[in-house]
Design a protein around this nucleic acid. Structure first.
Length: 566
RNA sequence: UGGGGAUUAGUGUAACGGUAGCACGACAGACUCUGGAUCUGUCUGUCCUGGUUCGAAUCCAGGAUCCCCAGCCA
């Protein structure tokens, strides 16, 4: 079976490059990668792909992996995000050697290099306002024009840059720009801004700076300082690579190789920090860690395991094709992992009362249940049984179609680990006409779940003894969006119109077996025949709350869907 | 109408001039005290048109489609 050990080391075009570099000694035989998040939001599963790639490469080739915050824009960044990102990286299992690095720690060095470029005539202070810079830049099809300040003498540039740093000028009044080529077909090369004036406190450097480096200027320097060998980023930075190279070459410092790969896209959700922030800010979800969110913290709260996420990242591979991964693959990896590790229990989401008429009033007993059929070492437990039980509402049908082989009038089924019961009648709710209670008889000879006479039943139902049940709130989740592509909208609508109004359904008073009463937040279970559930952070003793992590595969649901389609 | 990238089953990803494979999925069956799991089988593919070659997903030419770029965001 495809487990991580047997699968062998992953292979992709980036690892091919690394292998080749190692073979030729191109980068000194070293491998050093990094994950460089900006602390302006929570990590999502797309970041998990990047972390796995970067950390995986470092680990496989005996290299080093850095966690570095790209904190060059103080107005968007917060300590809360730094903390959450560290938690998430750790949870994902990426070993960053305990070094948490920050671009802001390199600000002084970056400034010295900027002065060096000015001295070389490769950068200048420009007094153009933001909109003027835009106008001078030209368009995709027309070249730009040189800034009137482009020819400023070196001494004047040096003086102005120094004064920019000292805080003599207001926000936006000047920038430091690289002198490259205003006619370049690559807009990034048209004298890009290196420093902008922002009188804003930084979450780490406080008020020490009022000029901050832009991404293009800073990123390669950060990589260079850390001795990164392979600077792996997403496709949208492909156009920036010439600039990345230009700065490093201009300075003549260690020059990592930038390699771009396709970011992850997933069906039925959005993976953009901007959009996720919007959902959080507008209260569309319970927060960044809402179990419906594709954030790492959301997945964690939902009950995902880091192993499942890692296996998913391994299976989707790494390439340059900008595609969309079927969320079913993520769910498959989840089930695969949860199946082998989750203890089984019984819980009923939508209870239907069952009275066993020939079971002695007031009697109670315990039946023995297997904790995990996939793992004999998990042992067994005892589950209380009684005269009055709850079964799942959908496990009974008054007039069943042929394919339905659960409980129905006159039909016999097995209660898991307990007895065969036969339905002898249903009491209807006079108001709704729906069955309110089922009357059954049981066969005492079938205790444990097998009939001595060898007769078979077609179904086994889960159940909970009414007298012993603990009550729980259960939150059942569905995809965040109703469409695989949330951007597939009617004219005039936006992606949020595809938000799934039923992405969360809260069920209360769900009977679960009593052993669950003491389960703490984060513990995971399989509710037999239903799915995998975990105890939510909101759970309290006496007020249990479960999240449905993912449902079990459900052929019956598929059959029903087929019926409805017809 | 500039530049940069991409295109292999429904989805993702291999094949590096030599039998188009894997995974998810779908479908069918076996098994089953979870309609779960497990097992077996089946299904669908090289963007198009030419060319080179004994042989092309792979090399060449032309075309199509999609993505990215005009932040003092990253």
């Amino acid at each position: 079976m495809a487990n991580q050990e047997a699968a062998g080391p992953p292979s992709d075009f980036i690892r091919d490059i690394v292998k080749e570099d190692l073979r030729t000694g191109k980068r000194g035989g070293r491998v050093c990668t990094r994950f460089p998040p900006e602390p302006n939001g929570y990590l999502h599963i797309g970041h998990a792909k990047s972390i796995n790639l970067n950390y995986g490469i470092a680990r496989e080739f005996g290299g080093r992996f850095n966690l570095r915050f790209d904190d060059t824009n103080p107005v968007k960044e917060e300590q809360e995000y730094v903390d959450s990102i560290i938690d998430d990286v750790r949870w994902l299992g990426a070993d960053y050697g305990g070094r948490v690095l920050f671009a802001s720690d390199y600000f002084e060095q970056m400034y010295r290099w900027a002065v060096e470029l000015v001295r070389k005539g490769m950068a200048y202070v420009c007094d153009l306002a933001a909109d003027e810079v835009t106008a001078y830049r030209g368009t995709l099809t027309r070249p730009g024009r040189d800034s009137p300040y482009r020819g400023r003498p070196v001494e004047e540039n040096l003086d102005l840059l120094e004064r920019m740093r000292r805080g003599e000028f207001p926000d936006g009044s000047r920038t430091l720009r690289a002198r490259i080529d205003m006619a370049s077909p690559n807009l990034n090369m048209r004298d890009p801004v290196m420093y902008r004036i922002m009188h804003a406190p930084h979450h780490r450097t406080g008020g020490a700076w009022c000029i901050y480096p832009t991404y293009d200027w800073a990123h390669g320097l950060e990589d260079s300082i850390e001795g990164i060998t392979h600077s792996i980023c997403t496709l949208e930075f492909e156009n920036h690579r010439p600039l990345y190279d230009w700065f490093l070459d201009a300075l003549g410092i260690h020059h990592p190789q930038q390699i771009e790969f396709a970011r992850l896209n997933l069906m039925y959700t959005v993976l953009s920090k901007r959009r996720l922030l919007e959902l959080v800010q507008e209260g569309r979800v319970r927060g960044w860690d809402d179990p419906r969110m594709p954030t790492v913290s959301g997945l964690r709260r939902r009950g995902y395991t880091p192993e499942a996420v890692r296996e998913f990242c391994r299976r989707i591979g790494v390439a340059k094709f900008d595609g969309v991964v079927d969320i079913g693959l993520l769910e498959h990896c989840l089930r695969e992992d949860l199946n082998r590790r989750s203890p089984r229990v019984m819980g009923v989401l939508r209870p239907l009362r069952v009275v066993i008429e020939n079971y002695p009033e007031g009697r109670a007993e315990e039946v023995e249940a297997v904790n995990n059929p996939e793992d004999p070492s998990a042992g067994v437990r005892r589950v209380p049984f009684g005269r009055v039980l709850y079964i799942e509402r959908e496990d009974f049908m008054e007039e069943p179609p042929k394919e339905f082989f659960r409980l129905a009038p006159g039909r016999e089924v097995r209660l898991r680990y307990a007895y065969f019961i036969k339905c002898i009648g249903a009491v209807k709710d006079p108001r709704t006409g729906e069955p309110a209670e089922i009357r059954c008889t049981y066969d005492p000879a079938t205790r444990g779940g097998d009939a001595p006479d060898g007769r078979k039943v077609k179904a086994t139902l889960h159940w909970v003894s009414a007298a012993h049940a603990a009550a729980a709130e259960v939150r059942v989740y569905d995809h965040l969006f109703t469409k695989a592509d949330p951007d597939d909208v009617e004219p005039g609508q936006d992606w949020k119109s595809n938000l799934n109004p039923r992405s969360e359904e809260v069920l209360t008073g769900c009977p679960v077996e009593p052993g669950l009463a003491s389960a703490g937040p984060g513990s995971r279970f399989q509710f037999e025949r239903l799915g995998y559930f975990c105890v939510d952070n909101d759970s309290r003793p006496g007020a249990l709350v479960f999240n449905r992590t993912v449902a079990l595969k459900d052929p019956w649901a598929k059959i029903q869907k087929g019926h409805r389609a017809r």
